[in-house]
Amino acid sequence: MTRGLRVAIVASSSHPIRQPFAGGLESHVWHLARALERAGHTVTLFAADGSDAEAAAAALPVRTFRPSRQACSDPSMPEREFLGDHHAYLGLMLELAESGADRFDVVHNHSLHYLPVAMAPTLPIPMLSTLHTPPTPWLESAVALTGGAGVDFVAVSGHTAAAWEGVVGRPIRVVPNGVDTDAWPLGPGGEGAVWFGRITEEKGTHLAIEAAERAGTPLRLAGPVSDPGYFRTHVEPRLRPGAVDYVGHLPRAALARVVGTSAVSLVTPDWDEPYGLVVAESLSCGTPVVAFARGGIPEIVDEHSGRLVAPGDVAAMARAIGEASDLPRSRVRARALSACSETAMVATYEDCYRSAVREGTARRLREVSVA
């Protein structure tokens, strides 16, 4: 029997990994950590204080830093959030460089910070880094300086992989984010539509409201208000009981009930969504998706699970709501089971981990023989 691996998962130093989740990345890390534990691996999590203690077997501390009064008065003093993240990740990477080989087999990086990638060559253990976003200046800088040494990159969609391959300079394996299909069960459907996710302008909450109003379909909104100014200006004035309702930032079970009792799920990104976790969660509930065809979303939604419309085409989305709501819900869920299940994701990550460990061992042996 193959022994379980000791996996250090690196997440956000700013957002705790707990319900209700700050965003899709936090949700993904929580589900992955728990799934790896169930599969027989030992997971240690680096994430902000307040993370769910049951998500992993152990935690790596997030080091905090308070600069002196003199340092704070320096004109070059950066924003405190930037400095806090820098200190936390620097401390983590120094700790892994010093003692990581005694404690872990592999590091799995999910953070969007540059230091894990920049300092990966200093680690005595391999790192797998999942690319959750399009290329960013800071991460590009880290790759440019190191050539991506010490890191095996994977991406959450073919779209995201293609965007990064020119930066990394080599093919990137795709590992779609999986969902726990037992936790997002098949629901009976309902009369109205649902939109859920972080309420920000780039997620296009206001476009979902406009599409539902055009279609004459009741709409429920759920998720954290990540941009209060946007919510006050573009969402709150359009709330009307029974027509457009904001049901709050819900824990997973309550959110799954809302999604499962909706006729359709509207997905309205105003940017190229790297993957679209809400799409996979909707499909798992049997709720057809009507979405703007942006980023990685067309890789998930097919003709049996929803409808894709041109980016920003609210009128087309409104027209597609009725057609999508007639799709058989069991067949919609079947798409989630085949294309974006947690089981398939974990199996693929296990293969990535073991490949990284083998390559790391071979690399160290070559270095010893040369020395």
Rank of each mutant, 00 (worst) to 15 (best):
L266V: 15
T268L: 12
Y275Q: 05
E281H: 06
W271S: 09
V289T: 15
V290C: 15
G296C: 10
V279C: 15
V290W: 02
E281G: 07
S265D: 11
G296A: 05
S282W: 11
F292K: 12
V279E: 07
V289D: 11
V278F: 00
V290R: 13
V279K: 07
C285G: 08
P288V: 15
V289K: 06
V264A: 14
P274N: 05
A280H: 06
E281R: 00
F292S: 01
L277S: 06
G276Y: 02
A293E: 15
V267S: 06
F292T: 00
L277N: 01
D270A: 13
G295Y: 09
V267C: 11
T268V: 03
V279D: 03
C285H: 05
R294F: 07
V267A: 04
L266R: 04
L277A: 01
V267P: 03
V264T: 11
C285I: 10
L266I: 13
C285K: 10
L266T: 11
T287M: 09
D272N: 14
V264C: 10
V290I: 04
L283K: 00
V289C: 08
G296Y: 00
L266S: 07
V278H: 04
Y275S: 03
S265V: 11
V289E: 09
S282N: 13
V279L: 14
L283D: 03
C285M: 14
P288Q: 10
W271M: 07
F292L: 07
